[in-house]
């Protein structure tokens, strides 16, 4: 029975030895291979421990069991994903980040407001805003509108703070140059200050991808129609069907990483001039 435990431990040691040997190299494929092997090791260890020690699937299902459920429940997972991510999180993300950028541009014209808004915004960004979820569910009803509202509130302040900071990022010399060209305020904004703010804006956008997903899922704990990732997680936990819960988590992780990756890709495309994007 404990062949599983010993086998997975041996695999772990071998994989670690391979990684330790490969890691001094800086080849591109090695950089991809090493973390992948580590991830596989974790899965093998998990499977081995669950089988070897006969852990009750109610506590911790094996990766293979989760994969089976995942493959069998794809229609359900897809409806949940559409409800939570595409309707709730994504629309809230667009509205919240868009509003924050517009407010930041408006505030940017008044140094007085800026000085006041930055500390307040920083403070609010650190607050447990998820707590607003029950209130917003009460206001906007059970469907995805309330989830979008939670996401808007959650992403607004981190985004605002980042954009306000970014708009100050252009140097005095560059701004002077725009003045010598007799550029109007809008020209200066569009041609110099917004592009200069892009690294900060994208930093905010990246932080907000995770916040958006969290907000949409947690808001569903306070009331939702009978679909959605948060709804599924809370009901399946109640039924102790943990393989389904883990499948939802896998979906959340994949979508979260893909969302983050998409924003990071857009960043590379927009701010190709920034030192952090240089390669080689």
């Amino acid at each position: 029975m404990n062949g599983w435990v010993i086998g997975s431990l041996v695999f772990w040691i071998l994989a670690w030895a391979v990684n330790a040997r490969l890691s001094p190299s800086s080849d591109r494929w090695v950089r991809l291979f090493v973390p992948t092997l580590f991830g596989i090791t974790v899965l093998v260890l998990w499977e081995g421990m669950v089988r070897g020690f006969g852990i009750n699937p109610v506590l911790l299902p094996a990766p293979s069991a989760i994969a089976t459920t995942f493959a069998g429940e794809i229609p359900t997972l897809w409806t949940d994903l559409v409800q939570t991510f595409f309707k709730g999180a994504l629309s809230g993300y667009v509205i919240g980040c868009g509003a924050a950028v517009l407010v930041a541009i408006a505030v940017d014209r008044s140094p007085f407001l800026q000085r006041g808004l930055l500390p307040v915004g920083n403070f609010v960004a650190a607050l447990p805003i998820v707590g607003m979820a029950p209130i917003l569910v009460m206001w906007f009803g059970f469907d995805w509108h309330s989830k979008a509202a939670v996401v808007v509130v959650m992403v607004f302040f981190p985004m605002l703070v980042n954009t306000v900071e970014g708009l100050q990022a252009s140097e005095a010399m560059q701004r002077d140059l725009m003045r010598t060209y007799a550029a109007s305020y809008w020209q200066g904004l569009m041609k110099l200050r917004l592009p200069a703010a892009m690294p900060f804006i994208f930093n905010g956008l990246k932080i907000c991808t995770t916040l958006a997903l969290i907000g949409a899922i947690v808001a569903e704990f306070f009331g939702s129609p009978i679909k959605g990732m948060g709804f599924r997680i809370s009901t399946e936990v109640g039924r102790l069907a943990l393989d389904m819960v883990w499948s939802e988590i896998a979906v959340a992780a994949i979508v979260g990483s893909a969302f983050y990756g998409a924003v990071a890709l857009a960043e590379r495309w927009v701010t190709f001039w920034h030192p952090s994007q240089r390669r080689g």
Binding site: N19, V34, P35, L37, F38, I214, A252
Partner: peptide, 18 residues
């Protein structure tokens, strides 16, 4: 090389949901 990417990826999992 092996752990750092996973630490970053771990934060895209909405733990609050779990």
């Amino acid at each position: 090389m092996s752990v750092m990417p996973w630490i970053i990826a771990s934060q895209t999992v909405p733990i609050l949901a779990i």
